[in-house]
Amino acid sequence: MVDLEKLKNVARETVSRDDVKYLIGWRQGTYGFRVSPHFVKEPDEAEKLIFSPLCTNNLATYLVLTERLPLLRGEQPDSRKVALMVKGCDSRAVVQQLIEQGINRESVFIIGCPCEGVIDLKKVEEKFSNQPGPVQARWSNGKIVFHLPDGDKEVPKGEVLAAKCLSCRYPNPVITDLMLWEEVQTRGSDEYEDVKELEAKSPQERWLFWEDKFSSCIRCYSCRNVCPMCYCEDCVLDRLNPAWVFRSNNISENTAFQLARAFHLAGRCIECGECERVCPVGIPLTKLNRKLAKEVKEKYEYIPGLDPESKPLQSSYRPDDKEDFIL
């Protein structure tokens, strides 16, 4: 059960520690069902923290996005820990970052928030459109309650949860320094039905499906920027020499961009769905990423973001890996 007081107390204590730089959590946004990341530096800023079905953002991205401003000579870098609040899926991003040495274990303090599932904003906004003021929400007995201006509205989870949450296998953080409340039950198993559905179609149909989607991509790169695994100093897809993809916004470059991005996330994507959530034109990127997640799991029995000691999939092999298609 979510215990907001405990959450705030823990946050206050944590940011009071000498070895903690700041804490990253969630706070209610300025309108509708939006939520913003909240950077808590001082104990009194903890008051604004929330944890609710609206907290979709995967804050792990901020661990690797921290800007390292040039230091003056003799100036010491701030090596204090960053405290981070994580849901189950978010925690897998942290683990994967550890696997890839994007962060050090000592440099983070992980506060686990077992999660009963977060909303798909699109579904909710469809239901309750036009909400100029901030609307809060909470879990209650398997339902989600929205505190709308005209009173509380209870909605069954199935109607508003994000797809990833409906089949979530890891609602409880897989790595923590502190767990805020008792663990929740795993919801369902994931058989990759969404992927299988598309696989069942003909190649032609699949091409048309993606052609339609990719052609609307405006190449804003939000999907990459939000991704907790896409933290290369200098992404190859931005580079001009060599230019893997051209800047032109057309089906050829857009497709190449998405294929390259998806491929780079093979065995690394932890299916947090952030890319799809932020895509302004609604491209179902999870459907793309999850194809590789499925293959990686089926072919190599590898699930990213679970074991910090595991070797990255892309830098390992087994001599007896399957190779039925090779001539």
């Binding site: 699949r206 499906f209 993606w210 093979a266 190599y300 092999y317 190779e323």
Partner: peptide, 18 residues
């Protein structure tokens, strides 16, 4: 061995997008 893994996945991805 590395090539085999990489291109197994690449093949799957290409087929998936048609």
């Amino acid at each position: 061995f590395y090539a085999r893994r990489r291109f197994t996945l690449m093949k799957e991805l290409l087929e998936y997008v048609g």
